[in-house]
Each structure stands twice: as structure tokens, then as C-alpha cells.
């Protein structure tokens, strides 16, 4: 006999992610899931972002890496609460570990919870963690063809940060092409051109974070 099933293979992860999301909403947190290749500048972006928002919005960061506490140490050295998850070889973070990591922060004093996913453009996009938005970070040395090579990530990301713009003049990176292809995948994507190392071009990104944090806070208040 044939038995209809109709269940998502990733339903266990998705269920936990939905639970995460409800909890984060109740806490009024704005939660973002940052995904990029290794070395694109995720941690530097967070250092600059926390610095720029100091005294205004508090960040807490969940760091996903295969191994080492290098990234969490870097952030902690700057006074940014950070929790390191070592996946021990796994190429992405899953919803279950996020809730455990989030519990290590004083969430009542946190406005923006950042999940810095494992450096990888493929698998992290497939696992919903309960975030409000995915953010893709693409650096110019990686090449302008990345959106079309890794369509799911660029399709799902609300924001695309194009980083290392200071290097673009030395590289065969076609900015217009990268932007046009990212828009094909997600016509509503917000694109910001930045140089995290130099701290340039971050205004639009910071404003987007402010708006997101304000919305999350208002949502929690309304729900009482």
C-alpha cells in the first residue's frame, strides 16, 4: 500500500525554529542570521556595528564555527557579549543549539541578537533558526558571480552587504552585475556597499538595524 505522508524532511528543525521565534518576539529582540563565505568580514562587521551603536542598542552575538573560540574572543575583547558554538565539523547551525546559546545572555538587556553562521554559502541557508531576517555578506574578492552560484542564500536574504568595497578598484568585480543578479533572486533585497575594515558605508545598514530593533520592541509591547 502507498501511504501519503506530506511532511517536510527538516520539520524537526523548523518546529524548534518557530519556538525560538516566538520566544524572541516575546523578548522584543531583533534577530538576524548573517551568512557569508569564510573571510568575507562577518566578525569585523559586527565589531564596527557594535561600536557604532554603543549606548544606543545592545548586541549579543552567537558565533558559529567548526572549531576554535577565536571569533567569540575577538568580540568579548571589545565588550560584546558573545557565545561560541563549535559545530565540530558540521557546516551550518541548527535551531536547537540557538536556544541553548541564547540562554547564556541577559536578553532583557539585549536589543539585537546576531547569529554569525558558519562561513559557508550553501547549507546555512537551508536551516531556519527563528530569525527575523537573513543577511548575506559578499566580499568583492569572492567575485560578482556568487549570487547566481548560491541562489538560495541570496534569494532568502533581506539584506545584502557588499563588503571590501575599498578593494573593488583592484579587482575584476562588476558591482552592477552583482547587484542586478542579487535583485533577480530577490527583487526586494536591500543592498549596502561597505568597507567594514575602514568602517565606511555603514549608515544604511545601521539604520536598517535601528528600524528592525524598533519594530521588534514595539511588537513585544503590543503583545504585552
Amino acid at each position: 500500500m502507498e501511504l501519503e505522508v506530506g511532511r517536510l524532511v527538516l520539520e524537526a528543525n523548523d518546529d524548534i525554529a518557530q519556538r525560538n521565534r516566538k520566544y524572541f518576539q516575546k523578548k522584543g529582540l531583533f534577530v538576524i542570521n548573517i551568512i557569508s563565505s569564510p573571510g568575507a568580514g562577518k566578525t569585523t562587521l559586527l565589531e564596527r556595528t557594535a561600536e557604532a551603536l554603543k549606548g544606543e542598542l545592545n548586541l549579543a552575538v552567537i558565533e558559529g564555527d567548526i572549531q576554535s573560540t577565536r571569533d567569540a574572543d575577538r568580540l568579548a575583547a571589545q565588550g560584546i557579549p558573545a557565545f561560541q558554538i563549535n559545530t565540530g565539523g558540521a557546516c551550518h547551525l541548527e535551531a536547537e543549539t540557538i536556544m541553548k546559546a541564547a540562554g547564556s545572555f541577559d536578553l532583557d538587556r539585549t536589543d539585537i541578537l546576531v547569529i554569525e553562521n558558519v562561513g559557508n554559502l550553501v547549507c546555512p541557508a537551508e536551516f531556519y533558526l527563528g530569525e527575523d531576517a537573513k543577511v548575506a555578506l559578499l566580499s568583492t574578492p569572492e567575485g560578482d558571480d556568487k549570487p547566481m552560484k548560491y541562489p538560495l542564500l541570496f534569494h532568502l536574504s533581506q539584506v545584502l552587504l557588499i563588503n571590501k568595497m575599498d578593494l573593488a578598484q583592484y579587482l575584476p568585480f562588476d558591482l552592477d552585475k552583482a547587484k542586478a543578479e542579487a535583485r533577480k533572486l530577490n527583487p526586494e533585497v536591500k543592498i549596502f556597499e561597505v568597507s567594514t575594515l575602514q568602517g565606511r558605508g555603514l549608515e544604511g545598514w545601521l539604520e536598517w538595524l535601528r528600524q528592525g530593533a524598533a519594530q521588534s520592541r514595539a511588537g513585544a509591547k503590543k503583545a504585552g
Binding site: E2, V5, L8, L185, P187
Partner: peptide
Amino acid sequence: NYVFFCPGCGSGETVVLEGRDMTIASIVG
């Protein structure tokens, strides 16, 4: 080719209906 603009009116406000996930449709046994 991963173009999510509407081929009819050119709008970028489109919603994905299917093709983004994996499901177990049925089992035979």
C-alpha cells in the same frame, strides 16, 4: 534561471509557492 520578477507585469513583489523545500510525499510498504 532564478529570476523572481513577474514575467507578466514585471513586479518584484512575488511569493514562492513551491520548489524551495524537500518533503516526504509518500511511502510504499
